[in-house]
Computed example of a mutant assay.
Amino acid sequence: MADFKLVVSDAKTGKAYNIDITGPKTTKFVGHAIGSEISGDAAGLAGYTLVITGGSDKDGVPMRNDLPGQVRRKVLVSGGIGYHPKEDGMRKRKTLRGNEIATELVQVNATIKEYGPKPIEEIVPKSEGAGKKKKAEKKTAAAAKKK
């Protein structure tokens, strides 16, 4: 059974929310392609509609919307997702994943298309990010040095 993190981006607030998808809920995502709409009920977001925008597997290989299928492929690319050339005309062979969600994915990205009755902040449990923890540790260390 595939377990992955669903990263839901909210365009109104500019925030992203991490939701763990485990067990039978994952079957509602597997096989859908980038750009397809999924009911938020599969992720515990009742009334929401999500649009899949991408994802990556355990090795960090990104999904690319112009590659059909679920498997990895070595593709000669000149730009776009997975490769940003330093000069015009540069091309490189990169390993990229197809546009369908597979069981090997670790992260799936989505955006909110339609909002539900409750705000997403109330539904998704708030977790303190790594950046906030580091800032708090720096502040306590700086306060200890002053004393």
Rank of each mutant, 00 (worst) to 15 (best):
K134D: 07
K147F: 13
P24D: 06
K132C: 00
I81N: 02
I81W: 03
A46H: 03
G60Q: 05
G98E: 10
A16R: 09
K134F: 08
E100S: 02
T103I: 09
V61L: 06
I21D: 03
I101A: 04
T103C: 11
K126P: 03
R64P: 06
G60H: 13
G116E: 04
G129E: 14
R73C: 10
P119R: 10
P24T: 10
K146S: 13
K5Y: 13
F29K: 06
G23L: 05
G131V: 12
K113I: 11
A102L: 07
I112E: 04
M63P: 07
E100A: 11
P62H: 08
K118V: 06
G98R: 05
I19M: 07
V30Q: 11
A136W: 02
V77D: 10
A46Y: 03
L76N: 14
G44Q: 05
K12E: 11
K86S: 13
G69Y: 04
K133E: 14
I120C: 09
L67K: 01
A136L: 15
K138N: 15
L96I: 14
A16I: 06
A46E: 07
V51L: 15
A130L: 06
T22K: 12
E87A: 12
V51I: 09
T26G: 02
G40T: 09
K28W: 02
M63S: 03
T22E: 05
P62Y: 09
V77R: 14
E87I: 06
N99L: 04
F4I: 04
E137Q: 09
M63N: 01
A2K: 05
G129I: 02
K92Q: 14
P62G: 11
M63V: 10
V108C: 06
V8W: 00
Y115I: 00
P119V: 08
V124T: 05
E37W: 01
I34P: 08
Q107M: 09
G129N: 13
A11H: 04
E104D: 09
E114S: 12
G80T: 03
K135A: 15
P125C: 02
A110T: 05
N65M: 09
A43N: 00
D57N: 15
I38C: 01
K92L: 14
G35P: 05
I52W: 09
K28H: 07
G131P: 04
L67Q: 01
S56Q: 15
E137I: 07
T103H: 10
T103L: 08
G98T: 12
V8F: 03
F4L: 01
E121P: 03
N109E: 05
G129V: 01
E128S: 05
D10G: 10
A143Y: 03
R97D: 05
S9V: 08
E137F: 07
P119M: 00
K94R: 02
E121L: 03
T95L: 13
K15M: 12
P62I: 12
Q107R: 15
I34A: 11
M63L: 15
A136K: 14
I19T: 04
K74A: 14
E100P: 07
T53D: 07
T140L: 14
E37H: 01
G55A: 10
V8K: 00
K135C: 00
S127Y: 02
G54D: 06
G60T: 10
S39M: 00
A102T: 15
I38A: 07
D66F: 09
